[in-house]
Design a protein around this nucleic acid. Sequence first.
RNA 1: GCCGACGUAGCUCAGUAGGUUAGAGCACCAGAUUGUGGAUCUGGGGGUCCCCCGUUCGAGCCGGGGCGUCGGUACCA
Length: 498
Amino acid sequence: MAKNKAAKPRRPRAETPRGFRDYFGAEVTNRAEMLSRVTAVYHAHGFDPLESSAVETVEALGKFLPDVDRPNEGVFAWEDDDEGWLALRYDLTAPLARVYAQHRRDLPNPYRRYAVGPVWRNEKPGPGRFRQFYQCDADTVGAASVAADAEICGMLGEALEAAGIARADYLIRVNNRKVLNGVMEVAGVLDPADPERDAARRGIVMRAIDKLDRLGLDGVRALLGAGRKDESGDFTEGAQLGEAQADVILGFMDARAEDGAGTCARLRELVGGSATGLEGVQELETIAEMLAASGAGHVVIDPSVVRGLGYYTGPVFEAELTFEILDEKGRKRQFGSVAGGGRYDDLVTRFTGEKVPATGVSIGVDRLLAALAAKGRAEAAPAGPVVVTVMDRDRMAEYQAMAAELRAAGIRAEVFLGGGNMGKQLKYADARACPVAVIEGGDEKARGVVQIKDLALGARLAANIETREDWQAQPAQMEIARGDLVAEVRAMLARAGG
RNA sequence: GCCGACGUAGCUCAGUAGGUUAGAGCACCAGAUUGUGGAUCUGGGGGUCCCCCGUUCGAGCCGGGGCGUCGGUACCA
């Protein structure tokens, strides 16, 4: 194909980078609304807001040592001429550890703070997985008591309910890493005298337990033993536990009983003589007691919750939504975990050398929003503003005055600023789902009246319109006195809204 | 990362064995309607057929490589 390609200008492609997205109108306002409800709960519990820097030194983020041109997998990092290696934060917890270590002399002890904002992860994105997303965290630093853990759990329930999730629609499952460690001792993969030994195997065990809901008991058993081959033929190395060892772990996961007391009694048996394990069970009992006393949300003790992350040291918990929704193709979909957290007593140690106890929760904002949106799929598109149309360009000031009057009365309103005739203006109003359009031409002006048009009503009537005459009858439009503009528009909005 | 499927207009897709100027529906724009959105009719704009290399007189179609999307799996401080 010897087409003579004249030099076409190379234009930039208008596209969001992979893994990122743009948020429009209602997505932004819905999120802001949800966050303000959630943070109001945090605030009511005495937590202070903290807005820390989005960029941290790689060193402060921890665990990642900057290496020549291969920055850090997982984070967005770059080398600054003066500052060395910097990176965008990948969560809100590591920055908290840094802020606390840096300002601990001036901060109250314990320090309770909440934080909201975007975090960035340089990972392969997938459906529902982005490289920038919002988190909403609350943490208590400097309180070793399980009362702090119980408070966070209860508060999470309150926050979910404030966000619009009914108590029956979510479930907070609580467990304790100490109990798990006790069980590992019994299974012989944790030696209290030599905690480093078998650490890798314990990691595999933990992640295997974490996959119970997806793989089922058989899948987990395979991962505890030799390994598991998935449907695509890929093989995952297992923890190489013997049958008896695996039974101990599986028994632990299955220890959930009718009620918390029953579960704890079983755990107490399973943990046997492990001091750590018994301590963990004791803590679970205390948390259950406290939550029951405070009438907190929907919380159960469930030994199958472990959380994949390695840094947790005590209570861990996860909130999941229990309702199912249908996606756009009619398939059943379940929302997994929308929030999680736990106690991590070692995070600040890196900076100060001291052991500072901390516990907290993180809500996956985007996931929770997606769930709320999916649940209320029937809800109508958010209404646009009232549009004051422009008939005579030289009377712009008068139109602006009308819009200002409406706004002063608390009604969202704008003057049409584009070009084009009446048809174009109403098309614009229609596209924005505006409830009402205001029209004042020279004719109306002379008679001291304006036309107001109920666009939503018009749309409903249009369904039954057959002839052009019906069409032009404009039943959704009424003429009112100019002086009654605010009152009449308000009344029309009320009719449309009711 | 690994395994598999797929990649044609903004969206959903068709495209006959490799053969002129690549199509449809929806959406968008304009006109019918000189002051009225959504119905109807007519017209219009819009494509690097994912990219590169190769085979061929000729490639949306065939071959190789790459990229991307989707599904499964792994990892996720």
